[in-house]
């Protein structure tokens, strides 16, 4: 603070005639502020440049080479990208598996989270207990959960099929049948919608009661209130959730790596997701150049989808205050 004051004082003193110096002084003050600013955020800048942006550029370069991490890095032009579409059959399989997963898991988990949050937004006794109960799966995570689900989904002794048997349905072999592996994973994801639910719950509580009161006066029913007030009012959160969970769903990896034998993406490659295929290329056969190219292609796919989402978002997302 002190130095700031003296600068002003000096500037006042120097006003008479010394225009040049003044402007330089002002510049240097600005520069100094900038220096401090950048110093404060420098841990992030270093981290970003060194650990994110640098490797990002490197992988972009590597995607045009036959880089194998340890001994080779020859420029091969677009060969890696050609290989994806001509030689590597598993590329298509993995992309299809991932798209399937994104297409079903994102809408289902979003709808599930909204549904759950609306239920948990009711004024019922013991609501805190239910909220905790439904949120719990979201804090359990990782490998333990996958193992738990492998047991739940076990074809003849698992709880899921036992339950289905009670209501007279013969459950599928889930993780052992290529046609049921992806639905099994999506089911598992539905179980842990708690994180999204919490976001919706918070935004539901921010919806002004006066809107509902006005609707009541106009004679709107429950459904009308939900579709014409609730949904539009929480649409920014829905938009955010859909956007981030789409990006997240494209990156599915752990589930398949843990829940399939030897992380192979089996049975019949039905759980060979894009990132798993990429990982296998990078670390099992040391085709880091090819894996980098795959990563960039995924980046482009996700980027395009995000831009489309943003454009579409303008049509249905309602920001209060005309934002």
């Amino acid at each position: 603070m002190k130095s700031y004051d003296t600068t002003i004082a000096r500037r006042g003193a120097g006003l008479a005639g010394k225009k040049e110096k003044t402007s330089r002084r002002r510049m240097s003050r600005q520069t100094r502020e900038n220096i401090f600013g950048y110093l404060f955020i420098s841990p992030w800048i270093i981290g970003f440049l060194g650990l994110t942006f640098g490797p990002l550029l490197f992988s972009l370069f590597a995607s045009f080479t036959d880089y194998n991490i340890t001994s080779r890095m020859n420029f091969i032009g677009l060969d890696n990208f050609k290989r994806m579409f001509t030689i590597d059959d598993l590329f298509k399989t993995s992309l299809w598996n991932t798209l399937y997963y994104v297409l079903f898991s994102v809408p289902l988990t979003t709808a599930g989270a909204i549904f759950l949050s609306v239920l948990l937004n009711q004024k019922v006794r013991g609501m805190k207990f239910f909220r905790t109960l439904y949120y719990l799966p979201a804090i359990l995570s990782g490998v333990a959960v996958y193992f738990l689900w492998m047991q739940l989904l076990s074809p003849s002794t698992g709880l899921v099929n036992t339950f289905l048997a009670w209501i007279g349905i013969e459950g599928p072999a889930w993780l052992f049948d290529p046609e049921w592996t992806k639905p099994a994973l999506i089911l598992m994801k539905m179980w842990s919608v708690g994180g999204g639910m919490l976001l919706y719950l918070a935004s539901l509580q921010g919806v002004s009661a006066s809107l509902y009161e006005a609707a009541d006066l106009d004679g709107a029913g429950v459904m009308k209130k939900f579709f014409y007030i609730t949904l539009p009012m929480i649409s920014p959160i829905i938009f955010f959730d859909v956007l981030t969970s789409t990006i997240g769903a494209f990156q599915i990896f752990q589930e398949a790596y843990v829940m399939t034998e030897n992380g192979s993406g089996g049975p019949g490659n039905s759980l060979l997701f894009y990132n798993l295929h990429m990982w296998n290329n990078a670390f099992e056969v040391f085709d880091m150049g090819y894996a980098s190219a795959m990563a960039w292609l995924l980046f482009i796919v996700v980027m395009v989808l995000t831009i489309i989402n943003m454009k579409l978002g303008k049509k249905w997302v309602h920001y209060e205050g005309g934002g």
Binding site: D89, L90, D177, P178, S264, G265, G266, P267, G268, N269, L272, N280, N281, E284, V285, F286
Partner: peptide, 19 residues
Amino acid sequence: YPDYQSRINPHIDSVLLGK
């Protein structure tokens, strides 16, 4: 053929599943 197993196994899976 470093990654040959990833190409053979799905076909064997599919045969053993009767598909």
